[in-house]
Simulated assay, not measured.
Amino acid sequence: MTAQLAFDLPSPAALRRADFFVSPANALALATLEAGGWPLGKMLLIGPSGAGKTHLAHIWAAQSGAALMAGASLGSADIEARSRTPVAVEDAEAVAGDARAEAALFHLHNRLAERRLPLLLTAATPPRDWGLRLPDLLSRMQGSAVTRIDAPDDALLSAVLIKQFTDRQVTVAPALIPFLVARMDRSLAAARALVARLDAAALARGGPVSRQLAAEVMDSL
């Protein structure tokens, strides 16, 4: 039998508020961002990779009209132009050790404060662990209010898996979801990648996404 060609077509990330699954792992962080009115107009969102920080940053940016910036790109950014609207800086710890990027974040922080515009920063760890070399920047980062998002719990991972299968129009047995959750890496990115691999493997074999197929795919990771 000739194997089918499997085309894993990329789909745009669903980063709207309606696509966000609320669970005990992220409910407080979501409420904090949506409420606004943060102390000194700034908030630091801390959480592990793949926990949903980018999704929350996009939700807040859409709500507040904020510009989204990557910490790694700050060194080459036009800070004066970017500081005329609220700003969300993702992976803010990426500025550490780059003199231009650290100075840019320092000036961005100050310009937004002067204009009474809010600043959201996301990071995997607290500022004391970033390795910042600019003392004034470190003091301002440490003076930010903090909210946290935890690693996804079982309910959130299950919801994301079901959504990913549904988006791909793949029908799976309900019992497969807890089987996957118990064995997969605990991140939203891992859930998306796992569904993509299972879908591709099922297409290549011309069969369903079964428990046996899932076990084989996961054993190969």
Rank of each mutant, 00 (worst) to 15 (best):
S76I: 12
D91P: 01
A173M: 09
L188A: 02
L45S: 01
L137D: 05
A31Y: 00
L132T: 10
A123Q: 00
R100I: 12
L198D: 10
A66L: 04
V146P: 01
A101G: 08
T125L: 14
A94H: 03
Q164N: 14
W130N: 06
A35H: 07
L15R: 06
F165R: 01
P39Q: 09
M184E: 07
V172D: 10
V22D: 04
L221V: 14
N110I: 08
D154H: 07
S23G: 07
P135C: 12
L120H: 00
H107Y: 15
E216R: 15
T85V: 13
R192C: 13
R116A: 15
L188K: 03
R197Y: 09
S64L: 10
P152Q: 10
A104S: 15
G36Y: 08
Q164V: 07
R148K: 14
R148I: 06
M141N: 08
N26S: 02
T166V: 11
A62L: 09
P10W: 03
S23N: 07
K53P: 02
G65L: 07
M218D: 00
R205G: 10
V181W: 03
L44V: 07
R115S: 11
V209Y: 06
L194W: 01
P152S: 03
P86S: 06
A182W: 03
A96W: 02
A99I: 14
G47W: 02
G52F: 01
A70M: 13
L56Q: 02
F165W: 08
A151D: 09
